[in-house]
Computed example of a mutant assay.
Amino acid sequence: MLSVRKNIPKTLKILFILGFGYFFWLMLKITWEYVPLKTDVSFLMIKQTEVTSRPEYLYFFYTHVYTSIFVLLTGFLAILRKGLGIKDLHKNIGKIYIFLILFLAAPSGIYMGIFANGGICSKISFVILGCLWWFSTLKAYQLARQKKFRDHQQWMWRSFALTISAITLRMWKVIIVYLFHPDPMDVYQIIAWLGWIPNILFIEYLIARKLL
């Protein structure tokens, strides 16, 4: 599951580790803003309509935010399992990763996608993202149960590519705002798609080249 093949250059691995560590720290800072359960900070400041008119929205929001940070971490640790030398690490954290996505992070993300900013264009993208995230993770789990580990590994890479959309979405937002200064709603419509489509295309390229 999610093993890094030897034919991927070592430099790329190091850059991946350093890059992920930095952006995970940033995501952790964002998550910490909602501890304790605050409703008037960061992203929730522009979601007050949902906060006040849909009591269930906060439950889905906090579920998504709090579980997604652990999904990021467990997915990353699964990649590094060989270097950590802990017996059965991959299998155990893989179970946590799959459980969190299938039962908590993806379903709550799909619900939030229905109320995404940026109009119908953004809503469609985030709902598709959530559904693909859920399906790719389920498919990986099924293949592991069938002991088809090569196929399992590739589907887990697809799942993780969608997982890190939480990071790449914010990267694209910074780049687009810095370069073009568009209207905020236009930004949402753009990053809603850019956050995950390049990720999955890159993984498909690596799979096609037999690098994963």
Rank of each mutant, 00 (worst) to 15 (best):
S159Y: 02
L77Q: 09
K139Q: 07
A140R: 03
G113E: 11
F115I: 03
Y141S: 06
M1R: 06
M185N: 14
H181G: 00
V35F: 13
K173P: 00
I176Q: 12
I110N: 11
A192F: 00
S53A: 07
P107A: 05
I79E: 01
A192H: 02
V187K: 03
I167K: 07
H181N: 08
V65W: 04
L84A: 10
S3R: 07
L84N: 08
I167F: 09
P182T: 09
L179H: 08
G130Q: 05
L212A: 05
V187F: 03
D151R: 07
A161I: 14
I8K: 15
V174D: 14
Q189M: 13
L102I: 14
R54Y: 06
A144E: 14
F43W: 06
N199H: 09
S159I: 00
M171Y: 09
V4E: 09
N92Y: 03
R145Y: 04
H64Y: 12
A208Q: 14
F16S: 13
T11R: 13
G19I: 05
A105K: 01
T11S: 13
E50C: 09
K87P: 01
Y178F: 10
I86N: 01
V51A: 01
C131K: 02
F149E: 14
Y34P: 00
F76W: 13
R81M: 00
Y66F: 14
K148N: 12
I46R: 08
K13E: 08
Y22S: 14
L179G: 04
G118E: 03
G109H: 03
L100F: 11
A78C: 11
M156D: 11
L129D: 05
Y141G: 01
L77R: 11
P198Q: 04
M185T: 12
F115N: 04
L179I: 07
P9G: 12
T168D: 10
I200C: 04
P182K: 09
K173T: 02
Y59G: 15
L77C: 10
K38H: 08
Y111C: 01
A106T: 01
V41L: 04
I96H: 01
K123Q: 15
L206Y: 11
F135A: 15
P36L: 08
L84V: 07
N117V: 09
L26R: 07
R54W: 03
A78Q: 13
F43P: 01
I17M: 05
Y111R: 10
F20K: 02
A78I: 07
P182I: 06
G113D: 10
N199D: 08
I197N: 03
P36Q: 04
Q48G: 00
I167M: 15
V65L: 11
I120G: 10
I110Q: 09
P107I: 03
A166C: 13
G75E: 02
R145F: 02
F23Y: 15
